[in-house]
Computed example of a mutant assay.
Amino acid sequence: MRIQALWRYPVKSLLGEQRQSLAIDERGVVGDRQYAIIDETGKFGSGKNTRRFTRIDNLLSLRAVTKGDAPTVEFPDGRAIDVAADDIDHRLSECLGQPVKIRRETEQSHFDDSPVHLLLSSDLEKLQKSLPGSKIDVRRFRANVILEDIGHLSASDLVGSVLTIGDTRLLITHKTERCRMVTAEQEDLEFDPRILKSIARDFEVDFGVYARVLKAGTIAVGQDVEIGSERVLRANNQDLGI
Rank of each mutant, 00 (worst) to 15 (best):
D123T: 13
I81L: 11
G45Y: 02
G160I: 08
G28T: 04
D224N: 12
E177H: 09
D25M: 13
I38M: 08
E190V: 15
Q4K: 14
D77W: 06
L62F: 04
D32S: 06
G208Y: 00
D82N: 14
I37G: 00
G151K: 12
D149S: 09
S134Q: 05
V11S: 01
A5I: 08
Q128S: 15
L120V: 07
G208L: 03
L120R: 02
L131M: 07
K129M: 14
T183S: 15
V221H: 06
K175H: 07
R139Y: 12
R231I: 11
L62N: 02
P71S: 05
Q223M: 12
A220I: 01
L131P: 02
V182E: 02
N236F: 07
R169F: 01
Q34M: 03
R178A: 03
V159C: 09
A235P: 00
H110M: 04
L189I: 14
A220E: 07
I56F: 03
T72S: 05
D206Y: 12
A211G: 09
R55F: 13
G16L: 01
T66H: 04
E125H: 13
R19P: 00
R212S: 12
S122D: 13
L96K: 11
I165P: 00
L118K: 02
E185K: 15
L118G: 02
R104L: 15
V116I: 15
I3E: 03
R140E: 02
D149K: 04
G208P: 02
T41H: 10
N237R: 14
D123R: 04
I242G: 07
E74D: 08
R91L: 11
D206P: 00
D69G: 10
Q128N: 14
H152I: 01
I37D: 05
R142T: 07
G28S: 05
I37T: 10
I56K: 01
V205Q: 10
D149G: 05
A64P: 01
F75W: 11
I146E: 06
T168F: 00
L96W: 10
I102M: 07
D239C: 02
G47H: 09
D167S: 13
E17Q: 13
S114C: 06
V182R: 01
D188P: 00
T54A: 15
N144C: 07
F44A: 11
A23F: 11
S46W: 03
P99A: 12
P193C: 12
N49K: 13
R178G: 07
A36I: 06
V213F: 05
S121E: 08
D239E: 12
A216I: 12
R234T: 09
A23W: 10
D188R: 05
Q98N: 10
D89C: 09
G31S: 02
D87E: 14
S154Y: 08
I199L: 06
N237K: 13
D32P: 03
L59V: 11
D202L: 11
D69I: 05
I195L: 02
D137Y: 07
P132E: 10
H110P: 00
L120W: 03
L240K: 04
R212N: 12
A184C: 11
D188K: 08
R55L: 14
S109P: 03
A23Q: 15
D202P: 06
R2P: 00
S130T: 15
